[in-house]
Computed example of a mutant assay.
Amino acid sequence: MSDGEGATARSADEQRRIVRERYAAIATESSDGCCDGGADGADDADQCCSSSVDEQSREMGYDDADVDAVADGANLGLGCGNPTAIAALEPGQTVLDLGSGAGFDCFLAANAVGPTGHVVGVDMTPEMVEKARENARRNDTDAVEFRLGEIEHLPVADGTVDVVISNCVVNLSPDKQQVFAEAFRALKPGGRVAISDVVQTAPSPEDVTENPAALAACVSGAATFADLEAMLDRAGFEAVSIEPKDESASFIREWDDERDLSEYLVSSVVEARKPR
């Protein structure tokens, strides 16, 4: 299980189908989006109002200025951290967001890189890309574009990106090694990875591992610290750092009504650099 997947022998195509279907439903379910379903896939409609999503975002590390800076509809409350806060973005940079969803982190990144910068969001779910493009018009920005594609096969040219960000998406991939290889390819020499993701701290119970909803809800596909470090190293990165955010237990506990998932998962800051 070097990529951190559960014991079930799902094909890569099956895993992508499960994830794509969940996020297509989220993108189309309501104007606010919906953070439905923990590991059991239950409908948490009461948690999907804007005020609840904003509160979840604050728990994940966004501040009031972040929440207020982006028009309604882009923040679906689906992440597990704030990658733009750790990316140290500078004006004029090109940023690539892996699994960009409705575009929230892309719009925050665009504010940081300014009119001379550029942000590219990549997502494999057509409904999410459509929603993100609508949000781009609502946010009145030309600095952000959204492309349909898999994060294992990025529709981005070699050596064109300064910073790769991502928010609780790499864990969903059936081939995380390929994700990091693609990020390395897309980055300029000296470019950086700055992502938030869940990391496995203990094996998940079998009923969680075998539950398709748990995979799509960022629960059963997480890799371990050792596996992530090894994959980043094999991809060619240096200065690899993976720091757990212990305070994430407060919101990870809310992902499932039947068990405390913070016993198996922790949100972490993953950073690495492509050699110059």
Rank of each mutant, 00 (worst) to 15 (best):
13 D>S: 12
17 R>D: 07
35 C>V: 09
100 S>C: 14
65 A>G: 12
43 D>L: 14
35 C>T: 08
92 G>K: 06
44 D>M: 09
103 G>A: 02
21 E>H: 10
64 D>C: 05
67 V>E: 00
62 Y>V: 08
13 D>V: 11
70 V>E: 02
79 G>F: 02
67 V>H: 08
90 E>M: 10
22 R>M: 08
66 D>W: 09
81 G>Q: 06
96 L>T: 04
39 A>S: 15
75 N>Y: 04
82 N>V: 05
110 A>W: 01
26 I>E: 00
110 A>P: 08
75 N>E: 04
36 D>N: 15
17 R>Y: 05
77 G>L: 07
108 L>V: 12
108 L>W: 03
99 G>R: 03
38 G>W: 12
7 A>I: 14
41 G>E: 02
43 D>H: 14
70 V>Y: 01
62 Y>C: 07
83 P>G: 03
54 D>C: 09
24 A>G: 15
75 N>D: 07
83 P>A: 04
4 G>T: 11
95 V>G: 01
11 S>V: 12
92 G>Q: 02
20 R>M: 02
21 E>G: 06
107 F>I: 01
76 L>I: 13
39 A>P: 03
5 E>I: 15
45 A>P: 02
5 E>C: 11
66 D>I: 10
108 L>M: 07
27 A>S: 13
68 D>I: 01
6 G>N: 05
21 E>R: 13
69 A>H: 09
102 A>N: 06
84 T>F: 00
19 V>R: 06
19 V>A: 09
71 A>R: 15
16 R>D: 06
53 V>E: 01
90 E>G: 01
26 I>T: 12
14 E>P: 07
28 T>W: 00
97 D>P: 05
9 A>M: 10
91 P>L: 00
66 D>Q: 08
6 G>H: 00
26 I>F: 12
